[in-house]
Amino acid sequence: MANEKGITFVGVAIFFLLLMFFPDLIIEHYLFISILFIIAILMPSIIRTSRKNMTSREMVMLAVLAAIASVSRIPFASIPSVQPTTFVIIASAIALGPQSGLIIGASAALISNMLLGQGPWTPWQMVSWGMIGFVAGLFAKSFFMKRLTWRLIYGFIVGFLFGWVMNLWILFSGFGELNLETFILLNTSSFYFDLAHALSNVFFLFLFSGVWIKILNRFKEKYGVFGDGG
């Protein structure tokens, strides 16, 4: 515990030192640096989950949820740009906690790309879905995620953010000349896809989040897994 907080602290400290002494470097490669920053934040929890002594029940449950999150796309293939993967990740993260949310989100991205073909977007999807799960899990215990309205707002915002992060990989390939204008342009061109994603998140969360969280909590209690909030 103390160790990984130390790692995060050192990461943040290095970031600010760089910002103070080499501002040009950061402004020139701000995208690159911010990605490093995200990785530095995520790394400790990934390492922690990797080292943690998980019971086999917990591991298999995580695997089932990750597999369901990526398989759930299949029945929805007939309805364009509606996919419940994000919903499955949010619901299971609220029930099982931030670490589990991170693992389920990142694994779901990795698995669906293993089936559909890896691309330069794989790490971006892993980070975005992992973060969606992590944040949903972090606020699970607070008033924020207990109210349905806030869950719906979270699902809506996250639908757009996911699309924007996915647009970043195109920008990232341009590397040198990045400007806000091209970023906004890309986002307007993908607006309808992002809107469909956000609305389907709201729809699924509205109808099913209560039931899913109940089911998962029931499993937690019945089999005594994820005791300390995962």
Binding site: S50, K52, M59, V60
Partner: peptide, 15 residues
């Protein structure tokens, strides 16, 4: 990531 890889292997079998 040995643990995570095991989860992935299990999940890949479940698909």
């Amino acid at each position: 990531f040995p643990k995570w890889a095991l989860i992935l292997m299990l999940a890949l079998r479940f698909v």
